[in-house]
Structures are given as structure tokens and as C-alpha cells.
Simulated scan of single mutants.
Amino acid sequence: MTINQNKFETSTELCQVFGAQILALLEKGIAQKGQATIVFSGGSTPKPLFEHLSKQDFQWEKVTVLLADDRWLSTEHQDSNENLVKTHFIQDKASSASFISLVSEKASVFDAEDEIEARLEHLASDAFDVVILGMGDDGHTASIFPCSSQLTTALETPRSTIGVQPTTAPYERISLTKQRLLNARHMFLHIKGESKAEVLKHALASQDEQEMPIRAFLHQTQTPMTVFWSKG
């Protein structure tokens, strides 16, 4: 299938265009339902987008934010995606947005799976308005890793969340599943740099989800994906 790709020279240019599209889609959700939900991914790539959005005048009090995944860490840890979002997005004009955490104080994610699943239960019947995924060099997305023993379950389970222990990356993880992420009105892939463009090219060339889990979202028609890529 053909993927709509939007390419920009700089992250600043991307943020202007992508940010406007995100706000338009959230506004549409609010107009239809009185509120809207957006799913962000972590990592360094979305930081400029977070900071751009946080400065925009919007009905942020009607927006619920959650993450596609998080590392099973204290929310004060520098590698916590929750810490990233709260530091760079839920600030300034976006400080009134609601946030649903994917972590708890339990020592292991595998002891907390039911707790986190229950936390998202009230959202189960409603599609996310916007889902923004990232992509690793190995083709993982969210914390659906090709190296983890939880891969097949993450791709097939009807649950919303799953605990993951990757073998090629640090920390236990909590991740939204394929089925829950695809229950979305609009889905995007946000990547940066020439190396990620090559990874995307490779991902589009085959449909083997076990090799590159991002393919589970690129090669499907339920919620067609749009790519936003910047060179720098």
C-alpha cells in the first residue's frame, strides 16, 4: 500500500505543519465528543514537537494525553518517557492537559499489568483521536521489540497493554499493544534523519511483522498511517 510521506529539511519546519494538523484533529475530536485523546511516543525526536505544541493556544483542558509506551522506571528518572512528556509538553499553555501514566510503584512491570490495564479501561470503547509512533533502528515501535519474548503476544492480544522485557535495550517496559494502537482515528509515524529514512524503506519492502514490528502499522488499512520525516 502507498504511505503518505511528508518530508522536511528541518525539525522546525516539520513542527509547524505537523503541529497544525495535530491541533486540527484534536479540535475535530472535541467538536464531536467534547474531548480528545492523543498518544505520544518518547525519545529525542519528538522533543521539538512537544515544545512547539505546548506554546499553542488550544483547549488543552479537554485533551487527554498518554504514551505509546514507557520504561519501567521512576517518573523522575531521565530515561522515563513520562518525565520527558511532562517536562517538554505538559508545560506553558498545555499545562491543563490531562495525563494518564502507564507506570506504578510495583518493582516489576509483570506484577502491574492488570493494574495498568484497568487504568485504561474507561478508554477501551473509544478510538484515540491521534496516535504518533516512533521507530527504532531495529524496526520496533512503542515497546513492541523484535527481540522480546512478548512480541507475538503484543501483536495478537486483545488487551490494551503488555509488559515487555527487550533483550537489546535496557529496562522492563510497558507498551500499548498493536490492537489498542490501531484503535485510532488518525495514526502517524514521526522520524528524523537519513538513517531512519533507510529503516523505513526497508520496513516498507516486506510485511514480516516479526522481523520489524513497525510493519504491523505500515501494512494495514484499519488506520492508514501518515509519515512525517525531517532530515535534520
Rank of each mutant, 00 (worst) to 15 (best):
P158V: 08
E27K: 14
Q32L: 13
S44I: 03
G134A: 07
E117C: 11
G29K: 11
K196F: 01
L120I: 13
I30M: 09
Q21V: 01
S175P: 11
Q35A: 15
A184F: 02
D137N: 14
E13N: 12
Q21G: 05
E194H: 11
E172N: 06
K33I: 04
S41I: 05
S74K: 06
V199C: 06
K86F: 01
K47Y: 07
I132D: 08
M135S: 11
G136A: 04
I191G: 06
Q35D: 07
I90D: 08
S54V: 00
A203N: 14
L176C: 00
K196P: 15
H140P: 12
R215Q: 10
L73A: 00
Q21C: 04
S206V: 01
D114K: 03
L53Q: 02
P46G: 01
I100T: 12
A36C: 10
S98H: 15
F217V: 10
E51T: 01
M212G: 06
L67G: 01
E209W: 09
S175Y: 07
Q210W: 01
Q210T: 13
L189D: 03
K231P: 04
D79E: 05
L84W: 00
R71S: 01
A154H: 07
Q35E: 15
K178F: 08
K93A: 07
E172L: 13
D126V: 15
I132A: 12
D208S: 11
K7R: 13
S108I: 14
Y171P: 06
S41R: 05
A216M: 00
M225D: 00
S104F: 05
K47R: 15
F128Y: 15
L14N: 04
E51C: 00
W72Q: 02
G19D: 02
D114M: 05
K106Y: 12
E172T: 15
Q220T: 10
K196T: 09
K47Q: 11
K178A: 09
S11E: 02
C147Q: 10
T221S: 13
T177C: 02
T153A: 12
P166L: 02
P146D: 14
G232C: 08
T221E: 15
A142I: 06
H190Y: 08
V63D: 00
E76Q: 08
S108N: 13
N81A: 04
K47M: 08
S175L: 02
M1N: 09
I162V: 11
M212K: 08
S41L: 03
G232A: 06
S11N: 09
P46N: 04
S11G: 03
A94I: 04
A68I: 02
P170A: 02
V109K: 07
P170V: 13
E115W: 12
V131M: 12
A142P: 13
Q222Y: 00
